[in-house]
Design a protein around this nucleic acid. Structure first.
Length: 108
DNA sequence: ATAATGACAAGAA
DNA sequence: CTTCTTGCCATTA
């Protein structure tokens, strides 16, 4: 649907979604791209990752992890500390996605 | 215009 | 579990 692909608008949309993620929950790059797919034609996990790398500093970036729960390269220490403080549990190096993966719409 | 490069993802082996 | 291959899309060289 939505045939819109304004770069700035997409960046804004991504950051907005990240701000919606509740403490103690996480979303994957792919989930964010999937959620925005309704309103933006061009979008991808790849794109969301790039956006987070460049503009993630203004939002709770540590609540965004990859599909298997791995933390963003170069920021594992900080991210893990933040998440642990919010009650997120880990399975080795990975976030326990089964317990903390979150998606809008369903509220929660 | 082609090629390489990413805070990615899913499937095959 | 690890590695490789495809598909993805913007950016940079």
């Amino acid at each position: 649907m939505g045939t819109r692909h304004e770069p700035a608008a997409y960046v804004e949309a991504v950051l907005d979604v990240v701000e919606l993620i509740p403490a103690g929950k996480v979303m994957s790059y792919g989930a964010i791209a999937e959620y925005l797919a309704d309103r933006f034609d061009r979008g991808s996990a790849r794109r969301v990752g790039t956006i987070m790398a460049l503009h993630g500093g203004s939002v709770p970036w540590y609540r965004v992890v990859n599909a298997v729960g791995r933390l963003p390269p170069g920021h594992e220490i900080t991210a893990r500390r933040q998440l642990a403080a919010e009650g997120v549990t880990f399975r080795g190096e990975r976030v326990n996605m089964t317990a903390h993966a979150w998606f809008p719409a369903d509220g929660r």
